[in-house]
Design a binder for these strands. Structure first.
Lengths: 237, 237
DNA sequence: ACAAAAGTGTTGTTCCTACACCCATGA
DNA sequence: TCATGGGTGTAGGAACAACACTTTTGT
């Protein structure tokens, strides 16, 4: 069966950048391509959009098909459409990015992918197509976004300690943050809910917190701005 | 002539949201459609992407073809791809938004458009397709962006007074700002260059300023954050 | 008792906010 | 001399930045 149109049409794909937080590193999920072009190269999970599905649905479908990751927060990043970005012809790709708690999302390669694995953001292999450029755009967006929107919580378990939250910012932004000031500021925002304490840790147990999205949305309506930019040490470059 | 593919493909279009600043209002440029569907309805300028042109190039081409506006700062906004957003079939559209100084960009309808005109953001006519949704996304993005990135300058002439700049923020954000505090803050950023004074105004002539992009980029590299959010009156809702 | 991480007190400084006032120009 | 915006001084309070210290747990 074939499909005929009066004018030529680019093909349409989606690609996913999945960020995950490991103890000390920001990581990203890649697949090893099982088909040409760029066979055996590492690439972003993604593929062609079906005619009867929305763009975000396509991204979620390909993500699950190729890596087994599902039920994640995803957000449109950017659409890449350079004329020569794909050797197969004119292919326009809509990139999505997601943040997941790495430990809660088991990964297993399948379908078109030979393999799927997490890579540290500073230890990326050579990537297929223009995926390096897409990745750079995603990292920049993540860094820009994390300071004025509380999206970082997606990278942590639903219950987390303030130290974990602080480390998240330190890892994502690559800076050091003063413990005292971080705590004062984040707690004064009043968007975290204090829960029980940790158990069985070989030191004073920390309180666990969870993000109170309802409260955050109420603040949003009042024009409140999430902002942790100021906390960064002045001498970090 | 016809084009045949093994799998079906959505058609690909671009749409442009052009914001312009009039004395007291934020306006947007619309065209009146000369062809079906939605003939005679107001819509965003836009159209199909050619196979041999980039996405941004397509947006700029359609913008000039349909409205005569050229040489503008444009930026990708979002890609809209609901299955049923266009009655002609599956059409995915990449939306771009631009900021222009309304007075420096003459508008004249042509090609597929019956007419082109500026509309106040609060006096929009009924729009074709899902263009209302696109417009809302664009306004939200503009408001969000203007407070932490110095893009607002694009809406003004290259030389402007501080009062004009302040009014820009007041209009875009729909808030009142204290004159004294606005000036202190914006000048302390040290990204404006003071020029000569105004002439022939029936009051004390103001100094003209221009945005120093080079200096701004230097600050960016050092991790400096543009931020005018704090200036907004606390009691504005 | 010690290691390790949690959590708090405090101080000097900078920045924010709100208000009031003076200045320069054309009509 | 008046109307109209342009431009500045300042004081009280809030927020920030930096540092040192105390607390609580398991071993």
């Amino acid at each position: 069966m074939a499909y005929t149109y009066k004018y030529p049409r680019p093909a349409l794909t989606v690609d996913c950048i999945i960020f995950g937080l490991d103890k000390k590193d920001l990581k990203v999920l890649l697949i090893r391509r099982g088909i040409e072009p760029y066979i055996k190269k590492w690439a972003l999970p993604g593929g062609f959009v079906n005619m009867d599905e929305g763009l975000e649905a396509a991204a979620l479908r390909k993500l699950e098909d190729e890596t087994g990751v599902k039920d994640v927060f995803i957000e449109q990043l950017f659409t890449f459409g350079s004329v020569d970005r794909d050797p197969r012809g004119r292919i326009v790709s809509i990139a999505y990015f997601a943040l997941v708690n790495l430990n809660e999302h088991p990964v297993h390669a399948s379908a078109d992918a030979d393999d799927a694995a997490w890579f540290g953001i500073d230890e990326l292999p050579e990537l297929a197509f223009d995926h390096k450029e897409i990745m750079e755009t995603a990292i920049k967006r993540l860094r820009g976004k994390v300071v004025y929107q509380p999206i970082g919580f997606e990278l942590l378990p639903s219950k987390f300690t303030l130290t974990q939250l602080q480390q998240l910012y330190e890892i994502v932004l690559g800076v050091e943050i003063n413990k005292r000031n971080f705590r004062t500021k984040i707690l004064k925002m009043d968007i975290l809910e204090q829960l029980e304490r940790q158990e069985n840790v070989p030191h004073r147990p920390a309180y666990l917190y969870q993000f109170n999205e309802k409260k955050y949305n109420e603040f949003l309506d009042k024009g409140f701005l999430f902002e942790i930019g100021g906390i960064i040490k002045k001498d970090s470059k």
